[in-house]
Design a protein around this nucleic acid. Sequence first.
DNA 1: GGCTAGCTACTCGGATAGATGGTGTCCGAGTCGACGTGG
DNA 2: CCACGTCGACTCGGACACCATCTATCCGAGTAGCTAGCC
Lengths: 166, 166
Amino acid sequence: MSEGIEWAIHCCTVLAVLPEGETLPAAKLAEFHGVPPAYLGKHLQALSRAGLVESIAGRQGGFRLAKSADEISLLDVVQAIEGEASAFQCTEIRQRGPAAVAPAEAYLTPCGIAAAMARAENAWQDELKSVSIADINQVVMAAVHPDQLAAGADWLAGTIQERSNS
Amino acid sequence: MSEGIEWAIHCCTVLAVLPEGETLPAAKLAEFHGVPPAYLGKHLQALSRAGLVESIAGRQGGFRLAKSADEISLLDVVQAIEGEASAFQCTEIRQRGPAAVAPAEAYLTPCGIAAAMARAENAWQDELKSVSIADINQVVMAAVHPDQLAAGADWLAGTIQERSNS
DNA sequence: GGCTAGCTACTCGGATAGATGGTGTCCGAGTCGACGTGG
DNA sequence: CCACGTCGACTCGGACACCATCTATCCGAGTAGCTAGCC
């Protein structure tokens, strides 16, 4: 699974605690997380295309959440980055080789293997669908060391201040 | 997800209906499924290393299941091919960047995002763990067209006969 | 006839190229805010 | 003092290289069975 997913989720959690109306550019998000700015921008574009974040161009521009944090599930983010295609792709190899006889009528029922894999993937998706960015933030707030939380909040406040001053 | 997983599972279902003591070489399995023989062999080696199938060298050699078909789950096959590493790898980017302060003590609790992803992956694994090769074969037997089933059985019987004659 | 040695053919197994997708970077189009100027 | 035009700087967005992994292939090591010769 792509590493960008972790970046994208973390970015959403940061954008979620942004003051109403404020915005944060990709470069600042990259600096906060210590990742390559340009590449992170690429993933943010994917989130934008999926309608999870809004992009504001020009000076004082940047990204902000397009929906409420509790309306964005982890599955939304994952699918925005990785695409909605299922991981397991059945190529119907049962229809190939010497044992394949009746092309059309014999294969009306779906491949049992594909069905089992689909059930597993649905279970995975259901689990991700049940967790929102807001939930993640709540867990992080409760679990992380207070100093850590304060450092993040300070940096964020300082960055916003700095941008509004320029 | 690798395409070889589909091949590997199909191969296991074929090996499961092999008469006791018989064996089937990779080339025949590839012919049956209409896939490249050498590449399929590579995946069968992975199954062998994982202890799911036994490999017999030399003339009249080939592959056969190392366990009973109901003791081999889809998860076993998937992990044999893809490796046991989880799809989502947390790189702890929360510990990077300007907001990271206390390296050791602040991060005792696991990352909330990684935890959520792990729960989802566990749900996926549990689903795959609950389905065995024997289950798959049972579903396929019931769902597939009788002609198809007969064609496969005939081909298999013919191949075994051919090999024992040579 | 029975046994043994050698041989042949067939099997897996790992080492070796090629293609596809993720990773990383760059520069251009567009936009907002600030500034200076004129009314 | 206010409105407008210009400028500048900053933002996203897509187009361009690079690299790792999956895909595909080949040839060599090893083994089982057959065959021929010998006792």
